[in-house]
Simulated assay, not measured.
Amino acid sequence: MIGVFLWRYYHQHHGIRKKASHNDPYGLFHLSLNRRSGEDENETPKTEWLNMGYWKVRTLIRKSFQMHAKATLALKLIQTAQCKEGGKILDVGHGTGESLILLLTHTSVPRPGYLSGITSIPMHHHRSLERLKSIVAADTKITLHVGDAVYHQDVSAANHPLNPSSSVTFDNILALDCAYHFQSRETFLRQSFHQLDPGGRISLADICFANTPPMNWKARLVRRFLKLMPKENAITISEYANCLERIGYVDVKVEDISEEVFPGFVGFLKPRGLVWWIFGSVLYSYYAAGARFVIASGYRSKESN
């Protein structure tokens, strides 16, 4: 989701506007990142990923983002989540539905019995609903919501999947490349803990900072420039793990996969024109200043209340 915020930054500071509704500040610019070289700009691409990708194989940088993202970062997150056949999954910040489609169709993913999703962007919600109409998922109940990832006590949030009064709980909660935006991430993690079944696991593809040096001046300057995350979310890898454990998660792991994410994504962006070259350069500065891309996970013990 970082590309969305880079594009938003460019809009705000350079006066560029995409065609979008009044309640959708981001539009569908990410479709351009999913098109293969030479594809018609007026055609909808086959995939609609909105994540930075997992560039384990360097030669993939020269291929399309579509081919790469479909089988890498999202699948790595799902593998970490240890999803089970017939399980109940909440997919938070699912964009225009590509991760939902993967959960319902990919041959290596156990098919969920219940799939819930939430996104804060109405256009993305409606597009996800439309795209899922073509998916045959007879054995899966699907419920999608519009709203903030964090539950707030008001009437409009009554059906929020993290409403503590909800009778629906989950085996897995997934957040693919988005939780660093939440206000706050810790609140989201606490709410998620209480909506997980005992033995349920949360898994996040997320951004934090290197353990050493902790949030140096360069990192603070770049974070303030990009407005990538709220101040309270700018924590180190060790602080991230401590936060999960303090909430009550066990078997906590925070895996640093920065080398397989930042350089590859930047290498993918830069050849796509001047604007993307600038975005890629700024993003690499963020990485050089201490930003780290991680896969964080933990589960709710069967003995917890």
Results as ranks from 00 to 15, higher is better:
residue 23 N to P: 00
residue 65 F to T: 04
residue 183 Q to L: 10
residue 201 R to N: 02
residue 183 Q to I: 03
residue 93 G to I: 00
residue 146 V to A: 05
residue 174 L to C: 00
residue 66 Q to W: 14
residue 15 G to N: 01
residue 254 V to I: 04
residue 80 T to I: 13
residue 175 A to F: 02
residue 212 T to G: 07
residue 98 E to M: 03
residue 281 S to L: 13
residue 237 I to R: 04
residue 168 V to G: 03
residue 194 H to T: 14
residue 129 L to C: 13
residue 187 T to D: 14
residue 116 S to W: 08
residue 178 C to E: 00
residue 213 P to A: 11
residue 268 F to P: 05
residue 243 C to I: 13
residue 86 G to W: 07
residue 195 Q to N: 10
residue 64 S to C: 08
residue 195 Q to I: 06
residue 55 W to S: 00
residue 93 G to V: 07
residue 284 Y to K: 14
residue 302 K to D: 12
residue 241 A to F: 04
residue 192 S to M: 01
residue 52 M to A: 11
residue 253 K to E: 15
residue 252 V to S: 06
residue 220 R to Q: 13
residue 49 W to A: 03
residue 10 Y to N: 06
residue 234 A to I: 00
residue 131 R to P: 01
residue 54 Y to L: 11
residue 285 S to T: 07
residue 182 F to N: 05
residue 35 R to F: 05
residue 41 E to Y: 12
residue 31 L to Q: 09
residue 133 K to A: 06
residue 265 F to R: 02
residue 250 V to I: 12
residue 265 F to T: 01
residue 222 V to H: 01
residue 236 T to F: 09
residue 27 G to Y: 00
residue 154 D to R: 14
residue 84 K to G: 09
residue 1 M to L: 11
residue 109 V to R: 13
residue 203 S to Q: 01
residue 152 H to W: 10
residue 176 L to I: 03
residue 125 H to M: 13
residue 53 G to A: 00
residue 79 Q to W: 09
residue 168 V to N: 03
residue 171 D to T: 01
residue 17 R to P: 04
residue 123 M to H: 08
